[in-house]
Design a protein around this nucleic acid. Structure first.
Lengths: 226, 226
DNA sequence: ATCCCTTGGATTGTTGACAATATGAGAGGA
DNA sequence: TCCTCTCATATTGTCAACAATCCAAGGGAT
């Protein structure tokens, strides 16, 4: 009867998580060169696990490493960020379609519940950017897993979302957007609830396209520094 | 004046390449448990680099690792393989569209040239499965890079294609398919040459969808063992 | 003054040994 | 005969020292 609470994982996993969150939260700025022993001291780990974590992060595209020259946090240009949204558009469109076909009724109910909670947050918190961002992430997360497409979910959750979130922290969504986004979310869930995969895909693609255009506008207006 | 011929990269990269090709070529069967020491002896490397390579491969989804229990080559079920093609459909559709917008005239000419060479191979080699598979890979490879979408190309070339190729080796394309596939390739390139992104996307999606149905049929007919 | 080469220092890549843990065989009991 | 528990073994995870490589500062030549 071993306690399944064993959260120990492994040192390398620990390093991986720490590094990933540090990158996503912006504690390590894009383009910044990071030394291995700096990280070791920072997380109280030895070089072995840290090194393995660096390898994994590099393979996922969050870090870029040059042999013997150290690793840097990947710096994504404005153009590349927009390209990321183009990818999200097609992939999450597919996720929405498959989610409409495969999500359980329970999952759909939960999804609607989270939207209600998001709405409450927006109302009371005057559209606090943070809650909106987290809520948005939650929404897309659920749909990705709801697609029952292992690889698709893996690519979205393990690759793209981390990259997008990395830039969310400096891209506060514009004032009016949270409400509109919530509305779009509602319509997507509606389509899913009606098991209309085609419509869900269409709405999701339009939703992400709108988000992309929103960012594009901000870049043109110089509200973002890269 | 250092000789730039030293392609040695690093030991870990070497291990990574060896392992990847070994997996793709089927020398390490899906589901097979592989010990670190075995690999060390196999590639004449020490455990450090091998271990790092394992970490990277795991992060890319080609391996699955359980703490203290060893790593196994990922075994993809028939259903998951079909899901992979669903992902390819939307992602390569996007790639084709962007390639139509961004490829240089030279790249397009090269692409057409490779198709000619593929056709010659099919004619003379009686549709040798091997050439067809490699040619097909070449075609999709060029379009992915031609999209000028860094992340998209990275995901296709670094993740999906390896997984698909891994199963290509046991999925000899059906007799009539190479000719049909070549025709579809030609029409896609035609659309790209005319800078018709929308059409290129449509044709590419249909092309991959056809390939998926082809596999689905084979699975139903029990021609494939999983 | 500028450019190129050299050299010292620091950082990364690699190695082999040590510690922790899961797998499997075997003994004992129901 | 089957099941459970224990323990030995092999394999993995981790650590600290060694070797290889790049980067920057400094000196000399043009």
């Amino acid at each position: 009867m071993n306690a399944p609470v064993t959260i120990t994982q492994t040192r390398a996993d620990e390093a991986f998580d720490c590094l990933q969150t540090a990158i996503v939260k912006g504690e390590l700025a894009p383009g910044e060169k990071i030394g291995e022993l700096d990280l070791c001291e920072r997380f109280n780990l030895t070089r072995g696990p840290v090194r393995e974590a660096l390898g994994r992060l590099e393979s996922r595209g969050l870090l870029v490493r040059r042999p013997h020259a150290g690793v840097r946090v990947v710096s994504v240009s404005a153009a590349e960020l927009l390209e990321l949204y183009r990818i999200r558009e097609v992939m999450e469109g597919l996720a929405a379609r498959q989610a409409a076909e495969r999500m359980t009724d329970q999952e759909i109910a939960d999804l609607q519940a989270t939207l209600d909670s998001h709405e409450a947050m927006i109302e009371e918190a005057l559209g606090q950017a943070y809650y909106q961002a987290e809520g948005d992430y939650d929404f897309h997360h659920r749909i990705a897993t709801g697609s029952r497409n292992t690889k698709l979910a893996q690519m979205l959750l393990g690759d793209l979302y981390y990259m997008v979130r990395m830039y969310r922290y400096r891209l506060s969504t514009s004032s009016g957007r949270p409400h509109r986004a919530l509305g779009e979310h509602r319509r997507i869930v509606e389509a899913i609830a009606q098991r209309d995969g085609e419509l869900a895909e269409f709405l999701m693609k339009r939703h992400i396209n709108a988000a992309r255009q929103n960012i594009e506008r901000k870049i043109e207006q110089g509200e973002i520094s890269f």
